[in-house]
Design a binder for these strands. Structure first.
Lengths: 107, 107
DNA sequence: GGTATTGTTAGACGTAGGTCGAACATGGTA
DNA sequence: TACCATGTTCGACCTACGTCTAACAATACC
C-alpha cells in the first residue's frame, strides 16, 4: 500500500481531482466493492449507510464510506440522522473509463 | 489488503484463473504499475528484469515481478541468467476488459 | 426532558505486505 | 577454475490500514 501524497477533503471532491492511486486503493478492498455493488443495484439516494449488508462493525463501515467518498466514488446526503448515498458513476466513468465496470461486472 | 484464498502458482497461470482481488492488489502498487507501463512501451520479450528503471532494490523488484506473474499480468522467459518479460495484455484484457487500459492511459 | 436511532471519532490492536541486506543459485566468460 | 552478472530466497524490520470497542454528536420520537 502507498502513502498517498494527495490531500483528502471531507467534502466530496470530484473524481477528476482524484488520482489513480486513490481509486485503486479504494477498489482493492472487498468490503468497499460490496458497498459499490449494493449501491449500483438500487436507485440513487435509496440506501442509508446502516442498511447495507456488511460483515463489519458500524465504525468500520463508516471508515469505508469515508474512503469511497474521498476517492470520488460516493456522494452522501444527510436526512435527519441518516445519510443517503449515491454512486458517482458517470463522474467516475469520465475520469477512469471502464474501471468501475470491471468491479460491477465481476460481482 | 486481503488474504487471498486463491492458490498462487509459480508457473504463469492464465488470467482466466485469477480473480479480481488479486488483479486489483497487483495494480494498486505504484512500482508494479511502473513495470507494466515500461513493459507496454517496448516490444515483447525485449526487456530483462534488471533493465527496468525502478526505485527499489533488486530483491524488492523480484518480489514485484512475482506478484505480477501470479496475477496473470506478466510472462517470463529465461535466457541464460536473464529473464525476459512480456505483458500478457490480450489475456488480461479478455479477463478484465478495460482494467489495464485505465492503468496505461493514466501513465 | 428522556430515550432510541444513526453515524462519526478516538484510541488501540493485529496483520499483510513493501522494503532492505545478505546469502544463495545459476549461467556466461576470461 | 575463478569471476562476474542476473535473479531468487531468507530473515528481519517497519508502516499502512482494516478492525474493534467505547465514547460522542445529532436528530427523531415519546
Amino acid at each position: 500500500m502507498v502513502t498517498n501524497p494527495q490531500r483528502h477533503d471531507e467534502r466530496p471532491s470530484g473524481p477528476e481531482e482524484g488520482d489513480l492511486q486513490v481509486a485503486l486503493d479504494a477498489l482493492a478492498d472487498p468490503v468497499r466493492r460490496s458497498i459499490i455493488r449494493q449501491l449500483a443495484a438500487r436507485p440513487e439516494w435509496s440506501i442509508s449507510c446502516g442498511s447495507f449488508d456488511l460483515p463489519v462493525s458500524k465504525a468500520t463501515s463508516s471508515h469505508h464510506f469515508a474512503v469511497l467518498r474521498e476517492a470520488g466514488l460516493l456522494e452522501q446526503r444527510e436526512d435527519g440522522t441518516r445519510r443517503f448515498n449515491r454512486l458517482r458513476r458517470p463522474e467516475f466513468d469520465a475520469r477512469f473509463p471502464g474501471l468501475l465496470d470491471v468491479v460491477l461486472q465481476d460481482g
